[in-house]
Structures are given as C-alpha cells and as structure tokens.
C-alpha cells in the first residue's frame, strides 16, 4: 500500500498549442492539509481534473491513493470529496433533497459532521439550492463533502467570491469539523491568509510546473528581504541573482530575492549598496513576490526605480 495520497509523474497536458501542465511530478503524502497556490492559468484546475480522471494526460501519469486516475473505480471515487469554486449543486432541488441524494451514495455518511458544519451557515433545508447565497452554497457543499468522510478532500478555490463573514465561517467549519484523522486535504486558494492559517504544506505551481513543495515556513526561508541604499550605479533587475521584486520606499531600495543566502549582502556591497539590512518576510508577501516575478510583462516595460 502506497504512503502517497497523490502521485504524479512527468504529467503533461497540452490543449492545442497551450501547455497547461508541463512535466509535472508531485508526491503528496497521506494526511494533513496541503495548499496549492498559483496564479490564474498555472494549471491547478487542470491538475485536479487529471487527478480525478476527467481529462487524460498528454503524457505521464497520475495516481490517487494508489490507483491510476484514468481508471478510478466507483469505490475509489467514493473515498474522494471534491468541492469546486462554483459550488456546483443541483439548483432545481431543495437542500434536503440534495442531502438525501448524496447521502444515499455514501453508507459511511456522518450526520454529526454534516450538522456540525452546516450549523455554521444559515441554510434552510426547505430552501431550493438555487436560492442559497454563494456563501450558504459553499457551506452546504462543504458539509456534504465532509459528511461523506472522504479519505481525500479536494477543495478547489472554495472561498472564491465569498465575503469575509462567509469565508470565516467556511474556514472555521473546515478546521473544527470532526474529520477522519488520516484525511488528506488539498486546499487550493488565492487567499494567502487562509493558506497561512490552515496549510501544513505549501505547493506552488507556475505555468504548469511545480516550483515549490515544502512547509510554509521553509518556503519563507527561501525568500529574502533586503533594504539598502544604492547610488545611481545599481545593477539592472535581471542581473540580480534570484531577483523577485524591487520597490523604492522613502528613497531606500526594498529587494526580494529567492534562494539567496546570507552571502547575498556581500553581493550587494560589491554592487555599491550601503546600509544593508535583512528583514523577515511574511508568507503572503513571499508568495506574491514569488508568483509575480515570473508573471508575463510587456518586454519594453521600464524598470521600477
């Protein structure tokens, strides 16, 4: 029995000329909450669709809980919960009817978990799903997914479009629900404060590639924040090793780099920098800088100075 919950090897998915996933290899161990972050178009949703067998890879393969994604059995599917950003549920049905429908498929359905989670939201069982607010629908969706007692729960940007209150309720419900100990949660989100609160492992995807798979703390250690003064002979951005971003605040240069150790201050000195300070960086800033560094820009955009 594999210890891996998710395993992808050289997974590539191409849509026409566009490569959505490029030679993507990822191993996720069982248990814990794993956050996947990436800018729009990084390939996160494609990855989930490939994992669930809803698309076939152009090359490579993926496994979910030891079984190949393309041939998941009904039993294996029953162990996977999936919540998408649209909270797609049958809008023509009443809440109670949808619950009954889902419940009928899962013999291990846990009423306590369902009630625990749904209590965070103001959902009337007699209401039609289409009449629920986005937040209520998200809560209802989550409560059903957790009540199924899945071994693997995939949450694909579940708080997208939710207001602060609904987002708060969603996270509380997710964190405090009595879920199975060995449940693995894959949480995909753009909200760094959510990731910071719940994620035990941080996976970053960029342009269909895996660029980080570590704990959030380890990731933050990779990002260095330097504040310095510089004369006019400062190097160009692309000449700075591991350069992520630069801003000028009160006449001082604020530079973020990746994978540059303490020796980087030596480099800065060599380049004419003075009054060099290294500051700590929070996860949100680190991830944002990491993601925006490779963001596509017009070629002739002037450097920020």
């Amino acid at each position: 029995m594999s210890d891996l919950c998710i395993e992808t090897k050289n997974l590539t998915k191409q849509f026409g000329q566009k490569i959505a996933l490029n030679d993507f290899s990822l191993n996720i161990a069982k248990g814990g909450i794993h956050a996947i972050v990436g800018s729009n178009g990084a390939g996160k949703s494609t990855l989930f669709r490939l994992l669930l067998g809803m698309e076939s890879p152009t090359s490579g393969h993926s496994k979910l809980m030891g079984g190949f994604s393309e041939s998941l059995s009904a039993k294996e599917r029953g162990r996977i919960g999936y919540v998408n950003e649209e909270h797609t549920l049958p809008g023509w049905m009443k809440v109670e009817a949808v619950k009954k429908l889902q419940q009928s498929f899962y013999p291990q359905w846990n009423h306590n978990i369902y009630n625990q989670v749904i209590d965070h939201f103001d959902v009337d069982p007699k209401q039609k799903v289409s009449a629920l607010s986005r937040g209520e629908r998200a809560g209802f969706n989550l409560s059903m997914s957790l009540a199924q007692r899945p071994t693997l729960l995939i949450l694909d940007e579940p708080t997208l479009g939710l207001d602060v209150v609904a987002r708060q309720s969603f996270l509380e419900a997710l964190m405090f629900a009595e879920t199975e100990d060995d449940m693995t949660t894959i949480y995909c989100s753009h909200q760094m404060e959510e990731v910071e609160r719940i994620a035990e492992q941080l996976i970053i995807m960029e342009q269909g590639r895996l660029t980080n798979n570590s704990t959030p703390e380890d990731f933050c250690k990779r990002i260095n924040y330097w504040v310095t003064d510089w004369d006019n002979k400062k190097p160009k951005d692309k000449e700075i090793p591991g350069f992520l971003s630069r801003r000028v605040i009160d006449g001082r240069q604020h530079i973020l780099t990746v994978d540059q150790g303490d020796n980087f201050s030596g480099y800065l000195k060599e380049q004419g920098a003075s009054d060099i300070h290294q500051l700590p960086v929070n996860l949100e800033r680190a991830v944002n800088a990491f993601l925006t560094a490779n963001h596509k820009k017009p070629e002739n955009l002037p450097e920020y100075s």
């Binding site: 669709r49 809803m54 009904a74 599917r77 999936y82 797609t88 498929f105």
Partner: peptide, 8 residues
Amino acid sequence: VFLLQRPL
C-alpha cells in the same frame, strides 16, 4: 465532476 465524482 459533481455528477461523476460519486461511488457509482
């Protein structure tokens, strides 16, 4: 995905 992702 909602339709297919069930033990059936």
